[in-house]
Nucleic acid binder design. Structure first.
Lengths: 237, 237
DNA sequence: TCACCACAGATCGTATACGATTTCGCGCGG
DNA sequence: CCGCGCGAAATCGTATACGATCTGTGGTGA
């Protein structure tokens, strides 16, 4: 991540990309990742180089590179001499992703906590309030966006760019998985908002590293558990 | 990682690569990663596509792909229209790597712990004994190799391939950094071996998740701290 | 009827070619 | 003597072309 040009950091959609990333490969990557996250490419569907190249108005070479990046991000699966397919939402894969995210996000949150300013805390509370307001008439996409924004606020003073990159990759993967099948786990949202507040309280109180890490990690783990509970009965008929 | 072909998973050198990975890009990647880890490419030196292509007896296209993979692994830094340079041993970068490794390796160790068999524990003890035997007439390369083998043994029953992949990437990066400048932190090796034994004791005793995670994480953190202590005075003259 | 082989279509992997961008040194003017 | 702009060399980015490999289909023989 630290080795990437500042303009297009690992495809993080938060930062506005300067319109023309001045590299066809970058544009292809952006286009594909958006397409996947918006569900325009169904999971399991094949990504054919020549076809995509024509759609994007470029040669296959940049497309190829973009696809290999997506492979690194675990957003597509690739087989030599066969091609790439959009990764599905195997519940097991979801577990891997959430677990990894819980790990890195938890650590990162704890590491950033002492450096979070009062202003940032306040901003996070405002965002969380907007999330709470959204609970009634629920919009998963908007909610997810706010969720990203919330956690981003706490990462303002990131200490370790490697870990921050892992967090971003986890988010990307998550949106890709989420948008493609399940809208959301019912009833999880309110608790999520509540946990956000608890987390902010911990940070405000200057709680020890481990407490914050555990709380942040548990926050993700709870979502995962809720998903598993919802899915498991339906899965093993 | 799970999306990679089984034969060449993210350049992990543990698994024997079937001689011909039957992909020039793969061969180039292997060759470059070895070259970097063995210090054949000095840190900071440029990796010129055409030049490497000729050395490896292939066109620039596979080389280019290999370099982008290395970029993803944070082994080279890349600048558009300029080229790739082997990543240096910036102490800060070392910190990032070790910190990340402490995080993912700690978690992975704790997660695998309950599944480690008695046989594997015994094997780990044997490996650690060999490391202890090596303490007298010290060989950093051999020691590092055994260290990898030791931790690999504990990962036999990995639960989360994503995290396992992160561990492997950390190891790769670490060998690359280590081989290029500092042989080792003096005096750290004996303590490292001792900590290994403590870790094995915890696992054997069926200690709770968090205890094992903390111990494994601390194991890396201690190495990092030792390095920082050694480096800091020498660095700021 | 079923298994197997051969062939054709589709798709990828790599080589080569050329335009685009950057870097560096040289000469000019102050 | 030093700063500045210009031009050539080096290097990368992308397009196009072709050979290699896989997949599916149809036909043949048991």
């Amino acid at each position: 991540m630290s080795t990437l040009r500042g303009t297009a950091p690992a495809g993080v959609p938060d930062t506005v990309v300067p319109a023309e990333s001045h590299s066809k490969a970058d544009r292809a990557y952006q286009a594909l990742i958006e397409g996947i996250q918006q569900g325009r490419f169904a999971p399991g569907s094949r990504l054919v180089l020549a076809q995509l190249a024509e759609e994007l108005g470029m040669s296959v070479v940049p497309v190829r590179e973009a696809i290999r990046r997506l492979q690194h991000d675990d957003l597509v699966s690739y087989e030599r001499n066969v091609g790439a397919t959009v990764v599905g939402v195997d519940p097991e894969e979801y577990r891997y992703t959430m677990e990894t995210l819980a790990l890195v996000e938890g650590f990162s949150t704890a590491q950033c906590a002492p450096l979070v300013t009062a202003g940032e805390l306040e901003r996070a509370r405002v965002i969380n309030a907007r999330m709470r307001a959204l609970l009634d008439d629920f919009d998963p996409v908007e909610f997810t966006a706010l969720n990203k924004e919330f956690h981003s606020t706490l990462f303002e003073h990131h200490q370790n760019p490697h870990i921050l990159d892992l967090v971003h990759r986890g988010w990307n993967r998550l949106t890709a998985l989420r948008s493609s099948t399940f809208a959301h786990v019912p009833g999880r949202a309110p608790q999520s908002v509540a946990e956000h507040d608890q987390l902010l309280d911990l940070i405000a109180a200057g709680a020890p590293f481990q407490d914050i890490e555990t709380a942040a990690r548990q926050h993700r783990a709870n979502t995962l558990a809720a998903y598993m509970d919802t899915m498991a009965p339906a899965d093993q008929h």
